[in-house]
Every structure is written in C-alpha cells, then in structure tokens.
Design a protein around this nucleic acid. Sequence first.
RNA 1: CGGGAUGUGGCGCAGUCAGGCAGCGCACCUGCUUUGGGAGCAGGGGGUCGGCGGUUCAAAUCCGCCCAUCCCGACCA
Length: 571
Amino acid sequence: MRWSTLFIPTLRDAPADAEALSHRLLVRGGFIRQLQSGHYSMLPLGWRVHRKVAEVIRQEMDAIGAQELLLPAMHPASVWQQSGRWESMGDEMFRLVDRKGADLVLGMTHEEVIALIGLELSSYRDLPQMWYQIQTKFRDEPRPKSGLLRVREFTMKDSYSIDIDDAGLDRSFDLHHHAYTRIFARLGLDALPVEASSGAMGGSASIEFMVESPAGEDDVARCTGCGYAANVERASAATTPVENRPGGDAPERFPTPGIRTIVALAEAGHPPEHQVKTLVYEVDGELVLILLRGDHPFLEQKFVDATGSGDLHPAETDRIRDALGASPGSLGAVGVDGPPIYADHALRGRSGMTTGANDDDFHLDGVDVERDIAVDHWLDLRGILDGEPCAVCGEPLEVVRCIEAGHIFKLGRRYAEAMDMSVLDADGRSRTPTMGSYGIGVGRAMAAVAEVHHDDAGLIWPVAIAPYEVVLTVVKTDHEPSMDLADRWHDELTAAGVDVLLDDRDARPGVKFADAELIGVPLRVTIGPRGLDQGSVEFTLRSTGEREDVAIDDLAGVVLDAVASGRRQGT
RNA sequence: CGGGAUGUGGCGCAGUCAGGCAGCGCACCUGCUUUGGGAGCAGGGGGUCGGCGGUUCAAAUCCGCCCAUCCCGACCA
C-alpha cells in the first residue's frame, strides 16, 4: 500500500489523559481512538494488528483440533437465570430490555450458551469436543483503564471443551495450555503460566498466562529457585519461623492508651510477628473474625476461594462495637464465642502473643492462640511478601506486576448440570460431561505487546503481527530512479505475499523516519539518491537499529529472508 | 461507590485568581524556497470555551446543578 493514500493519523503528542505506554503509543501511532471510556475504535492500522493477532490464535486453536464457531453476543436472560449467574454477575453484566419487555443481556462469556448447544451431544462417542469463537464481549467494568488493557467492549477468543470424564478434561486443558504457550511465543510475549484463583467462574483449577509489565493489574509470586509461580491471590509461602516469647498461664491485660495500630503497638515493644491481628468482616451479612499474624496482610480472595462466600467487606464500626464492645484498634478474639473465627495457619502453635482486649485502650499479652482462642477454621488467608521463602524449595519469592494475557479454567460439571447436559456412556448410563473454558483478550494481547516492545521512538511490532512487515521509505519522491525502484519492489514483494508499505508521501525524510518508527514497522528500506549513486539502498531493523547497505539486485532477497525469519520467530 | 484532578479548534497548552475583542505551538490549506532524522518565510481556514441554569451592562472567567474523561482505592473471569 502507498502511505499517501492511507489513513494513518499519527500524533506528535499523546493525549493528556493517556498514561499507560501502550495507550499513548497506540493513539499516537494512529492505531486506536477512544469513543468513550472503555470503548475504542480500531483504526485501519490497529485493525490490521488485531486481525493478525486473531489469526495467530486461530491457527493454534485449529492446530489442537478446536473448531471455530460464532455465538450470539446478545442472550435472553433465561439462559443466565438457569445457571444462576443472572444474580451472581451483578452490575458487571450489561442488561437491556427489548420492545416486548423481555430481559436481555450482552454476553460477557459463553459457558451457558455453549452448554445449550452441548444438549445435542447424546453419546460419549460424540466427545470430546472443543469449540471456540473470536467475538465481542461486553463487561460493565467499574473502572476501564489504560487504553486497551481494561475495556468494557472487547474481542475475546473464548473456547470451551466438553469431555466425558476428568481425564478427558485434563487432556483438553493441557492441549489449551500448549496452544497458549505457542500463541504467546508467536506474539512475542514472554507469558508465564501461573496458578490462579478461579473467581466467579468456579471450577477446580485455573492457570493464568502473565506478562510482566508495570502496566499490569495483577501481582504474581515467582520463585527464583524452582520455578513455582502463582497469582498472589492464591500464592503461598513458607512462613518464616518465629520463636515464641515466654508467657504465663493466662493472658495478661495491660493498658495501651491511644494505641490503635500494629505499628504503634510494635513501637511499644510488641513486634508485629508477636501480635495477633483481628479483622472483623461482614460475609454475606454475617459477622466473622479473621485472625492473622501482625505482619501478614489479609488476602480477601483466599477467604472467598476457601469458603465459597459471596459478598465480603469490612464490618461497620458500629456493628463491631455492638458485637465485641470495642472499636477497631483494640479488637481481639480471646474469649469470643459468637461469630465464627477464621485464623491463618501462621498462628498455629504461637504463644506469648499480644492482641486487643476488646476494651478500648487495653491489650492482652501472653496469649497462647490455640489455648486462648476458639478458632473454628484454620485457613491460608495471608498475602505473601516479596522475598519470603518459597513453600516448595525455600528460595526467595519475588512479587512481580503482570498483565493477565490469558486464563484457562477447569470448570467441572457446574454448567453442564445447570443446563441439563448429559450423554450416555458405554454402559448406556446417563452422565454429565465436564467442561473447561479458555480465554484470550485479543486487544489486551495487542496492548501487552505494545507495553513490552517499544522504545523512545515508538512501537516495535514483531513481524508476525506488524501492521506492515516492511516500509519502503523514499527519501526524495521527485527523484525518479528512487520512485521507480520503490514501485518495482512494492509490487514484487506484495506479489510474494509480504505486507509492504510504500512511503511515497511528499514529506521531509525526518518525518518519514519518525513516523515509520512510531508505528513500529519492523523492517525498513531507505531509498535515496545518495545510496543509489553507490548502487545500494539501506536496510534497517527497527528492533536493534542495525543497518546495512544492500546492493539493489540483492534487496528483494534480503527482505524476503528477513520477513520469513521474522514470521518464524516464536513458532 | 469513596478520594483526587481535568474539560478552551484534530493534538498539546495559555487565558479563569483579578469578568471587558478567544489566543499560542503542532497539525491542516495556498504560494515560494528547502529536502538522508519531526524545515523556513508569507498568506489563510477551522472553536456552541463540556452542558444547563443563575448573577451582571457584559461570563471561558463568578455562583449552582449536571455530564464527561483520567488517576488512586473499592470492585472485577
């Protein structure tokens, strides 16, 4: 294509409200424009990248035997009511009413619809099945942000597996794991598979594919020794052992005027690891006490995952006073019998501890947790800290910020059961199949690549998804020999299947170089009188800045080789 | 939903405190000169100053309400 005829609105300055690097670069490069918060238009350049990302995904899904289909984006409420998610999805689901007054939803995922189609499966001989689509999803995010990284309307590749038994699900899950590994490698993303929380999807296991980036929204704990990696929402660490302080036969009450925090109590001679932190939460309307070691943060997701509870939030101060007789800052669980008490494993066997006395301005010392507190449930409830020892091998864990580029779930039979899916097994008995679901956000993957592959001058697309693979930069468009050569190469390379961009704009060379670098075309051929006098043109790699003079007769071959090797990268 | 900030031409900004002709840079159009890293000169086009209401002789500017956008938090497959 000729640049002069294309719509590539590059900007010298990024919009003031764009902060994430991928957002700034995609807008400046003329790839995307915002329509409203969380909704972006894909301009021609952006759509080319989007299509290529989708195509890489499509090829790898096809390669594991998944079949592409396309489901409606708008669903009747009844489908979601049947699975129970009409209620549980809450405000995140877009809902609307048609002219007949019927409730409809805009699909945020498609387990229900897939399961309905699965009703036509009648025999174990029909299984396994893997179906996928690349389609628009709608989610009413409370806070869209960072350009394409978190939006309300986006293209997702979602796939679903249906198997007769757990072994089959394991197989489908592993096939997807393998496909995802290949997809992210081809996109130029170093995606780390990590153990994850299943959240609202439910199910027995899930793995997220995480790309390290400061623009991400998730923290991953990664072992520097053995390779253990997990989202901090479910990561565990070995607890650093603490020697118990001596304590008497019973807790001892002592005055602590004005002391309300762990830190303040620590300054009064009771280090955080010798304190019991008492949190009061409202869980589905009921009060519960949550106990942790003073230096350990509470991780709500772990509580939700372990108890299957729904709504969870810190209790109101008034309600805490009514139940315990004191305000936050002086709370403790000693002698409490009423609300259920959940304690983190790190408190097991601990004595000589300090905790609130449930009396403002008083604490208890010499507390033996198992002797003095009626713990109902011992759970892993704590967030891990950077540098803590790995639970597997003991080496230090590091916590890194990541973008969630993909997520795969073992769902189990929940949706199949809800939608009444069943097949007959070899013995003629009715069996409920088990399902998996697997997602990649296409636009988010694109933004993740932009986050990772750029420099001060702009984007640096991997050849596999570059909007154009090579740009022919004509330094002087009124220099006939330059334009003649550029035209010839444009046609020749295009005929050979290369995506060629011919910069034939009547602009100064500096502008053309800057634009080519901003939009991130990986290969550049600079054609100008200076080189042609020597019988050569300049060939530049965007990624490294490496440049070489190539004889005119050799140019087409050099470009074809570079494109071919670039396309192979990561495969 | 809580906290903070911002809305002035396509993009970046000044002007708002202290009411009085809507400005600057980039981009865009025309002409001339220039042309291997974001050119120079000259001329030109484009803005309901987020919206509604109020105060005033007069509102981008003061007051009230609303809306939108961004950031932090809450929340979130």
